[in-house]
């Protein structure tokens, strides 16, 4: 069981690392949203499930309630993260920021 917890925890930290590096490396803010919104959500999912598995090891009602709360946080994050991502994207579109494309910076999608 401990091995599963460690694997999940390291997987989550790996995704967090990827998200942070992606925020630095990608060329414009539309592309930066991809690692920021999604890889962080995956990292949260993995680390939180690792922690709730670890808590559930000595099984009482109290630890069960705490683990359920952690699962509910994950569900909440999965419900709200698309909305937050779309809100940031919408703010950028309404402000008239041009998306970075390979051909040249200033051609919007047809």
């Amino acid at each position: 069981m401990n091995i599963l917890v460690i694997l999940l925890l390291f997987g989550g930290l790996f995704f967090f690392t990827g998200g942070s590096i992606g925020i630095l490396r990608f060329p414009d803010f539309y592309t930066r949203l991809h690692p920021a919104g999604k890889l962080d959500t995956a990292g949260q999912f993995l680390t939180m499930s690792a922690i709730s598995l670890y808590i559930m090891q000595d099984f009482t009602l109290h630890t069960f309630l705490t683990a359920t709360k952690i699962v509910l946080i994950v569900i909440f994050v999965y419900l709200t993260s698309p909305t937050a991502t779309h809100a940031i994207m919408d703010a950028g579109v309404r402000a008239g920021l041009k998306p970075w494309t390979k051909a040249g910076r200033h051609d919007l999608a047809d």
Binding site: G19, F29, R32, A36, G37, D40, I88, A95
Partner: peptide, 10 residues
């Protein structure tokens, strides 16, 4: 500004 928003969210 939206870049800063992404950073704060992360």
């Amino acid at each position: 500004v939206v870049d800063r928003l992404i950073g704060v969210n992360a």
